[in-house]
Amino acid sequence: MFHIILWLSLPLFSQQYYTGNPDSIVILSVQLMDESTLKPIQFAHIINLRTFRGGISDTSGMFRLPVMHGDLLRVSSIGYFDQYYLVPDTLKGFVRLEILMRQKVYLINEVRINTLGNYEQFRRKFVSTELPDKETRELQRKFRQMARDTAMKSAPVRTGIPLNFPSPEQRLEMQRQELYKKLREQRIMDDKFNPVIVSRLTGLQGDDLYEFMRYCNFSRDYLLSTNHYDIMIATLHAFEQYKRIKGRNK
């Protein structure tokens, strides 16, 4: 008896908002379902565009709403196209319906995901990275070769003319300092941009790796004045362009 009284009370309550012929008032009990999976759509919004009253579907996709003939309902839910339902004159009393909703694909701009973290995180990881022994030995070999070449070029030459030129020892020291400077700069550049780092970033190996490094063509001044993090970001951007160019040339 309680359920019958509750059901009868809905039309009486709805007449506060719906005027006209009581026979035109319909109680809609609607279940919203996914068109593809037939699963219920919960927490969708339903609004009567004539009265601007509505509700929200429950966890089973159900909602109940008093309407009148000719009312237009709009159903909206995130991830779905809006659905519209016009209440026909043929409906009477209490009506149960199912409304199928079609999934919507949202087009968004390109999202670039950076796996390097922020600069401070990258700096800590980079500082703790040890270069392979092979690179260290190669730098030592270059240093010894440059030192021998410098010593040979710095042999004393007697002119017999008392000019105020640096002594052979001074010239040797100046050249040694210049050599140290070049070695330090080369080590700095190699630390920031070398085959090991580029291969880890891009996955390239062998000839493809060195071809891409030549494509980057970073200047000496750029490598010396730019931090490790920004060089890696620039390398990743260059790699995206490089892949597009290689794709067009296939």
Rank of each mutant, 00 (worst) to 15 (best):
I4H: 15
L8M: 13
L10Y: 15
L12M: 08
Q16R: 09
I25D: 05
T37I: 02
I41P: 01
Q42V: 05
T51W: 04
I56N: 08
D58S: 03
D58V: 06
P66D: 01
V67M: 03
H69F: 06
G70H: 06
D71Y: 05
Y80V: 01
Q83C: 03
Q83L: 04
Y85I: 11
L91F: 15
L91Y: 15
L97R: 04
N118G: 15
F122L: 08
R123D: 10
R124P: 11
R124W: 13
K125Q: 06
L131W: 09
D133A: 09
K134S: 15
E135H: 13
E138L: 14
R141M: 12
K142I: 07
F143T: 09
Q145D: 06
R148M: 14
A151F: 09
A151N: 13
M152T: 14
M152Q: 15
K153P: 06
A155I: 14
A155S: 13
P162W: 03
P168Y: 03
R171K: 05
R176D: 13
E185L: 04
E185T: 05
Q186W: 07
R187Q: 10
R187K: 11
M189D: 07
M189K: 10
D191C: 12
K192Y: 07
F193T: 01
P195N: 00
L204R: 04
D208P: 04
Y210T: 07
N217I: 04
Y222F: 14
Y222N: 07
L223I: 03
D230C: 11
F239H: 03
